[in-house]
Amino acid sequence: MVRFILSKLLFLIPTFLGITIIAFGFVRILPGDPVLLMAGERGVSPERHAELSAQLGFDRPLVMQYFEFLGRLFHGDLGNSLVTKKPVLGEFLTLFPATVELGLFAIVLATLIGVPVGVFAAIKRGSWFDQVSMTAALVGFSMPIFWWGLLLIIFFSGILGWTPVSGRISLMYYFPDSTGFMLIDSLTSGQKGAFTSAVSHLILPSVVLATIPLAVIARQTRSAMLEVMGEDYVRTARAKGMPQRRVIGVHALRNAMIPVVTTIGLQIGVLMAGAILTETIFSWPGIGKWMIDSISRRDYPVVQSGLLLIAGMVMLVNLLVDLTYGLINPRIRAS
């Protein structure tokens, strides 16, 4: 098992280096002066141009710049934002919990609903439940989530007035964020109603973010279950006189989950892309909104490092999924 993890980790190194090259090269390989690109339509004076160039190290050879970039990276230095002047890593770490909170909530929601729906649709193949849920799944899979979010706001916030429109918590409450996770912080703050407020702010964004993963997980679970239910060992379980619940819930499900876990893992990337849209719609102060804001402000160190951090994070999550896959699939673990 240790060797399995180590070999996976070793395999990640070239990928991570590749990611750094892409993140580094983005602005520089493309035509145009990066300093002018950053300055945008306002333009800069020649003195300011030289100053910025030197500050960002653009006056040195490209390869040198890359190795300096890499060196700083290993020391945790990802540069400073051009707009706020603060270290990028610090900003990332402050905003990161908001995105994790949203993403975790969404993926848990998607899994908790998607897996049972898929299982049930497979068992009752061809029934009205199967047809309705799989049609719904295809609609969810085809959903422009930025529109879906707006619709939900119109309905639940506008017409019913049940949920707030934006943000993580009502402005009435203020407490220092100790963990960065609003649900935890609001609970430990001891302020009355803070937790409820945090939950009500989280519901709509996580429903929106969960939509596509939910659809994918439900579809994948259904087809995996259908395949597994035709296997000989499921017939054996029945022949052993095991109750239907156990045949499906233990013997079939355990094997069907192997591809489903991979699918859930692959949704992390989808979730990150979805977070950009969801956070924009709901003004959720997380990584996605930070990236889109930085892009429109041409805050290029943030874009570069944000890209790197997000890709690195997706890579790590995929590693975790690979390891889980090894855990639940004895055939991999043994070899």
């Binding site: 000989d232 060992y233 054996t236 022949a239 052993k240 006189g241 355990r254 094997n255």
Partner: peptide, 24 residues
């Protein structure tokens, strides 16, 4: 029927490896 199957009447199959659950 389940009280009967797997207790009083049991069955074995042609493909022994495929007939056992690979995950347990």
């Amino acid at each position: 029927r389940r009280k009967l199957i797997g207790r009083e009447i049991t069955m074995i199959f042609q493909e022994p490896v495929a007939s056992l659950n690979p995950s347990f």
